[in-house]
């Protein structure tokens, strides 16, 4: 530990959404292995500013692996080489002196590059907007212990709810599909008793919004490997099941009206 390493960085630079963009090479000398990956970029940026070069734009916020703001393609892997880890939690002790590191933004047509390594991920919010909620106006909730939730269901819902919305699944997917994100969000609510009333409507709306913006799933499983919260592919299967069921159920429900 506490070792100092030097790296060669190949970083994607793109001055605005309409710029073509290209890789630039930078030397990162004397980086402590205790530094996080983003701190390494901070140091590079500070040196760039001293040289009079505009710093590399990349997004990050909490740097605790929970807000989902950060996300870089590092050496061809979303969030870098360590599994189950967001970029901000990746530390330089995972790299060796003299390494060449290629850093690229997330790629998907619905994640347009804003600048350098920053991308826009609005469609993920649109999927939530389409139905990623339980309709319970403030004040109308019954006592929290009124409906016991079996621990297994609660735990499984939680596994889905752990999604931080970083978009790594879309970035890693060769098809740019958002199945893992959508299924995590959908199943978080669909697995809980509270979410049953709107279950089928939710499945239809969220999936169809997803399909407006993203590619289709071919079950590669790359998304799961890239996911910093290690969300399971099982949720995608559950979503596929719920969606077709929803098409049938919603028709029936509509008939009852």
């Amino acid at each position: 530990m506490d070792q100092v390493i030097s790296l060669t960085l190949k970083v994607w630079r793109q001055n605005g959404p309409d710029d073509a963009g290209a890789f630039q090479t930078y030397q990162a000398e004397g980086i402590s292995q205790d530094a996080s990956f983003l701190e390494m970029l901070d140091i590079v940026n500070e040196r760039l500013i001293e040289e009079g070069t505009e710093p590399i734009t990349f997004e990050s916020d909490c740097r605790e692996g929970i807000c989902g703001t950060c996300g870089l393609m590092i050496n061809g892997k979303a969030h870098g080489p360590e599994l189950g880890t967001a970029t901000c939690q990746l530390h330089m002790r995972k790299f060796n002196d003299g390494d060449h590191i290629t850093i690229e933004p997330w790629r998907a047509v619905s994640f347009p590059v804003i600048k350098d390594l920053a991308v826009e991920r609005t469609p993920l919010d649109l999927i939530i907007e389409a139905g990623g909620y339980i309709s319970v106006p403030t004040g109308s909730a019954p006592d929290a212990n009124l409906t016991p939730v079996p621990k297994e269901a609660a735990d499984m819902a939680f596994d889905a709810a752990a999604c931080i919305g970083c978009g790594a699944c879309v970035a890693a997917c060769p098809n740019s599909a958002a199945q893992l994100f959508t299924s995590a969000k959908l199943n978080h609510l669909n697995l809980l008793p509270q979410g049953q009333a709107e279950r089928w409507q939710r499945a239809e709306n969220m999936v169809e919004t997803m399909e407006m913006y993203f590619g289709t799933c071919t079950n590669h499983g790359e998304c799961h490997e890239a996911c910093p919260k290690e969300i399971s592919l099982d949720f995608i299967a559950f979503m596929n099941r719920d969606y077709v069921k929803a098409k049938i159920k919603n028709r029936k429900l509509a008939g009852q009206r």
């Binding site: 190949k10 994607w12 890789f23 393609m73 050496n75 061809g76 892997k77 599994l83 290629t102 850093i103 690229e104 890693a172 060769p174 590669h220 499983g221 790359e222 799961h224 490997e225 890239a226």
Partner: peptide, 8 residues
Amino acid sequence: GGQDFIAA
């Protein structure tokens, strides 16, 4: 920069 597949 290329992509490094893990599961696919």
